[in-house]
C-alpha cells in the first residue's frame, strides 16, 4: 500500500520559504508545489489570480498523461514540461519523484531564468522532502507504539456531522 503524505509545520514553512525565494529570483507570477496526485502542497505569489485547486488537479493530470506518453516510447519520464502562451507561460518540473513544481511567469521573466532558478530550488526542496519522509515514518512508529494519532479518535458521529446539511 502507498503511504500517506504527511507534512508538519516546520517542513511546510521551509518549503514556503524556498517557493518565496524562487518566485523572487525568477520574477514569476506564481509558484505551486503539487503532489503528484493533484493536491496542492504549498504555493507563493499572486494566488488570488488563479483557481489554485483546479490548477493543482489539472497539472497532476497533465503530468500523469505525459508520464504515460514517456513510458509508451520507452522513456522513464519527461522531467520538464513547458507551455507557451501569448502572455503567460507555464513551466512544470518534477521534484524528488513525488512532487510537481509549477511556475507561472510572463514576459518579466524568461524560460532560461526560470529553468536556472528551478534547478537550484529543486535541490533544496528534495532535502526537505527527505526530512518529511523520515519524519512521517518516525511518526508512524510512534503511533503504532502509543496509538496517539489525532485521527484514531474519529467517531461515527464526527463523520455523520460532515454530512449533516
Amino acid at each position: 500500500m502507498v503511504t500517506d503524505l504527511v507534512i508538519y509545520k516546520e517542513e511546510y514553512d521551509r518549503l514556503e520559504d524556498v517557493l518565496r525565494r524562487l518566485r523572487a529570483d525568477s520574477n514569476a507570477r506564481a509558484i505551486f508545489l503539487i503532489d503528484k496526485n493533484g493536491q496542492q502542497i504549498a504555493a507563493s505569489g499572486e494566488l488570488d489570480q488563479f483557481d489554485t485547486t483546479s490548477l493543482a488537479s489539472l497539472t497532476a493530470g497533465n503530468v500523469a498523461a505525459t508520464d504515460g506518453l514517456a513510458k509508451l516510447i520507452g522513456e522513464r519520464e519527461f522531467s520538464v514540461l513547458f507551455h507557451e502562451g501569448k502572455q503567460d507561460h507555464i513551466h512544470i518540473s518534477i521534484v524528488g519523484k513525488r512532487a510537481i513544481l509549477l511556475v507561472i511567469f510572463d514576459d518579466r521573466s524568461s524560460l532560461g531564468l526560470v529553468r536556472l532558478r528551478v534547478k537550484r530550488a529543486s535541490g533544496d526542496m528534495e532535502s526537505i522532502f527527505d526530512r518529511m519522509t523520515s519524519k512521517a515514518s518516525e511518526a508512524l512508529e510512534d503511533v503504532s507504539a502509543s496509538r496517539s494519532s489525532p485521527f484514531s479518535e474519529i467517531t461515527d458521529e464526527d463523520i455523520d456531522a460532515l454530512f449533516s446539511e
Binding site: V2, T3, D4, L5, V6, I7, N37, Q39, F151
Partner: peptide, 15 residues
C-alpha cells in the same frame, strides 16, 4: 493516498 497537512490542519482525500 491521504494527504495530511499538520501546518494548515487539512486532510485531503481522493475518491
Amino acid at each position: 493516498m491521504t494527504f495530511i497537512n499538520y501546518a494548515s490542519k487539512e486532510i485531503n482525500c481522493k475518491i
